[in-house]
């Protein structure tokens, strides 16, 4: 478990003070994959570095399994770091060492017996799918393979926490997918708590259980990935969600609606989980004397839960519309008026 309590980080640049982190409170539960998203400069990089004290908080505490890490002596910090693996955007491998030695490095530093190192590294090479590349040098491998070395190296000391610093930001979409799959496997197989930072909402949707949105050194929104994606509260969060989930009316259609005299209510209807299978639209139009015009619709999956989103124009007798809406409210489906679209 990682607990951030009032974590603040202030840099002095000349006479100006820059607040990279401004009172962060966050709890990452054991075994979770927790994603922190934000635009560049939001403070994500500082935040993740306070966990293994690559950056020391100016105020506040970071506790790992209940222990305040910044109160430790240098020697204890080094010991604690062996329990916290870290992977990086640019991999940070040793170009002068083979793949094998790169992965073995944390064990060499702890003076682990050679035979033990060989067993462990062979096992890790197998796990990340690089068993046949042991004697190559990192520069001979692709970006995805380099990140696999990074992951294997981070796992060498059997850590309980893995920090991922923009681990897929330098990779193409396909490679990103394979690395995210690997991270999920790390989480499941070794029960490792993962804290990752990213600026890509797709990464959050793909692997995270929970998400926090960071802006100007503050957490502006946090929750399960499902909740935050299906019901974003903050404008910045909405921008991030929109970057991966298209759930808005196309601009052209919007203009068209505005240009007509129609003053019919438009509703956004959200289906989640089992309600996705609920034949709402056809039922409503059959039961009431209404025209239901679907302007927009899509369906995706979030954390394995189906999530559908329809934008529907209701036209007909206002009293009938009200009755139809009442029925929606009593169903497992969520409806939200979007009249602003038409006005």
């Amino acid at each position: 478990m990682i607990q951030f309590e009032g974590v603040t980080k202030t840099y002095k640049s000349g006479k100006r003070e820059v607040h990279a982190l401004n009172g962060i409170d966050l709890t990452v539960g054991t075994g979770e994959i927790y994603g922190v998203i934000g635009f560049s400069g939001a403070g994500k990089s500082s935040l993740i570095r306070t966990v293994n004290l690559l950056e020391r908080p100016s105020a506040g505490t970071v506790k790992i399994h209940g222990r305040d890490i910044s109160a430790l002596s240098p020697k204890e910090i080094r010991a604690a770091r062996k329990d916290i693996g870290m992977i990086f955007q640019h991999f940070n491998l040793l170009t002068s060492k083979t793949v094998f030695t790169n992965i073995a490095m944390p064990l060499i530093l702890s003076k682990t017996p050679k035979a033990e190192i060989r067993t462990r590294v062979t096992e890790l090479l197998e796990f990340v799918g690089l068993a046949d590349q042991a004697d190559k040098y990192p520069e001979q491998l692709s970006g995805g393979q380099k990140q696999r070395i990074g992951i294997a190296r981070a796992l060498a000391t059997n850590p309980s926490v893995l920090l991922c610093d923009e681990a897929t930001s330098a990779l193409d979409p396909q490679t990103t997918q394979s690395i995210l799959d690997l991270l999920r496997e790390v989480n499941r197989k070794y029960k490792i708590t993962i804290l990752l930072i990213t600026h890509e909402m797709a990464v959050i949707r793909e692997v995270c259980d929970k998400v926090a949105v960071l802006e100007d050194g503050q957490v502006i929104e946090q929750g399960t990935v499902f909740d935050v994606f299906s019901n974003p509260q903050h404008a910045t969060t909405r921008r991030f969600v929109r970057s991966v989930m298209n759930d808005e009316l196309p601009e052209k259609l919007l203009k068209q609606i505005r240009n007509t005299d129609r003053q019919q209510p438009i509703y956004r209807i959200q289906f989640t989980g089992e309600s996705v299978a609920y034949p709402l639209i056809s039922q409503l139009s059959r039961r009431y004397d209404l025209e239901l015009n679907v302007l927009f619709g899509n369906i995706t999956e979030l954390q394995g839960i189906p999530y559908g989103n329809l934008i529907v124009e209701f036209s007909g007798n206002p009293a009938e519309i009200q009755r139809a809406l009442l029925e929606i409210r009593n169903s497992p489906v969520l409806a939200e008026e979007l009249n602003s679209y038409a006005s």
Partner: peptide
């Protein structure tokens, strides 16, 4: 030498000498 390498070394608990 890329500072990232130093950062990775610190993150794995290396001493300054190492």
């Amino acid at each position: 030498v890329d500072n990232g390498v130093v950062e990775a070394a610190k993150a794995m608990g290396a001493t300054p000498g190492q």
